[in-house]
Design a protein around this nucleic acid. Structure first.
Lengths: 236, 236
DNA sequence: CAATCAAGCTTGTATATACAACTCTTGACC
DNA sequence: GGTCAAGAGTTGTATATACAAGCTTGATTG
């Protein structure tokens, strides 16, 4: 056994986490105040405070002196994400963004994809292919495989209006991610879409996102090296 | 003016930070206990505790119930860093690592480098060029420009024994970093060093590291796309 | 009606206290 | 000399309290 008696403040943290993860408390919802939690859990204000404090540091909550504590916007969490939502990135540069949806369907996964998605070869997965444009120039091809068990309504979305990343974030807001970045030469089809020659180096990012239930999706992002670079800012 | 009266715990935090940044307290040094800080700053234990707690969360300190509080190893911080020390990465794969030092000198910086290092064109900067090998195969070329005002003894190091990144981390442990990742075609000289053809795509990472005094260094890391990929694991 | 002010709520800081849990040293005992 | 136990010192958890500072609301007042 690991812990006989979990600390009181962790119980409160868990309670709040569950409310948020389960969707009972929405973004910007007001969270019980320190005094309310004090009564509800029969603890001192300092203990209730500690729970709220730590969740705030983790980015789940936002506190404002005088007005209260609120569920954070998941958007703000994505700023922690290394590789950001491309639509935001382009907008921040003051450029025009638009997307073209090339495919959106259910497919049989091959062996490689199956492994990466924790499925079996031949299982069905949802697949989307979206081309992202910056000022009318194709800048990134996003091919994405999604675990159908975890994101049921993926195929009914319109990814010219919302990016797959944004949609998935709204469905499973609390996730981990692994990234692999490679420099590759793209195949002929991809080169044609991106309007580059077959000898042009491309940046390819494979991003796997996880929720507590397993792998949510695998994104393969391919960008021409001469049109796109990956930026990041880390403080440590 | 921003703040009339800084909180007491921030004063203690600053005090500890300065001791660490200035090198007066080494890695693994014992930090004053909560009770000692309580006396030294004439505050309550809870206030002293808060300072230690927050610095622990920031990764500067390590606490151990029963034994005390210690300055963290800066090594452990680099695990937060996206793009890791290549020597560690190779060792973790169970492969053999070695480095070849190609250059180590003072150079005049051109305009591009000057801007990135916050120097003026024609100023002197320290320059190092190191080739990293995994199992005798060249895997990464590291070209680095260092601000001579901030790292005085850079030219006297032996970068076959310690990587530039490790050395700089020990000199200016508390930094920020910005990264840019591109897919490029390397020039002939670089291709020869990396033993690849001139049409092979390469991953190029430009990493700028900052201390509180300014830009410390600019690293240009070039790796063949078919031999190297960038991995990362983010939790958010 | 509009502006102002005050009350009441919220979070932020700070203190004093108590006990629990853990580590390490020291000293007594075998 | 080795083993065990006690104790001192450390961090971890929890409570009760007080006041400061910021926001919201509603009543008062011009």
């Amino acid at each position: 056994m690991t812990k006989l008696k979990p600390a009181k403040y962790t119980i409160i943290k868990q309670y709040i986490c569950e409310k948020i993860e389960s969707g009972q408390w929405f973004e910007h919802s007001k969270v019980p105040s320190e005094n309310e939690l004090t009564e509800q859990f029969s603890v001192s204000r300092m203990t209730a405070r500690r729970a709220l404090q730590e969740l705030t540091e983790q980015g789940l909550l936002v506190r404002s002196q005088g007005s209260g504590t609120f569920v954070a916007t998941f958007k703000s969490q994505s700023s922690l994400l290394e590789i950001r939502n491309i639509a935001d990135e382009i907008h921040e540069r003051g450029h025009q963004y638009h997307a073209q949806q090339l495919a959106l369907q259910s497919v049989d996964v091959n062996e490689e994809i199956a492994i990466l998605l924790s499925l079996k070869t031949g299982d069905k997965a949802y697949f989307s292919s979206v081309l992202h444009f910056e000022n009318e120039v194709a800048i990134q091809l996003e091919q994405r495989f999604v675990n159908p068990k975890l994101v049921a309504h993926y195929l009914t979305q319109d990814f010219t209006k919302i990016t797959p990343h944004e949609y998935l974030s709204s469905e499973a807001p609390l996730t981990e991610a692994t990234h692999e970045v490679e420099a590759i030469l793209a195949n002929a089809d991809v080169c044609k879409l991106l309007n580059i020659t077959e000898s042009a180096p491309c940046l390819q990012v494979k991003r796997r996102t996880w929720s507590s239930q397993g792998v949510v999706s695998l994104a393969i992002l391919t960008s021409p090296g001469n049109k796109y670079r990956l930026g990041s800012h880390l403080v440590f």
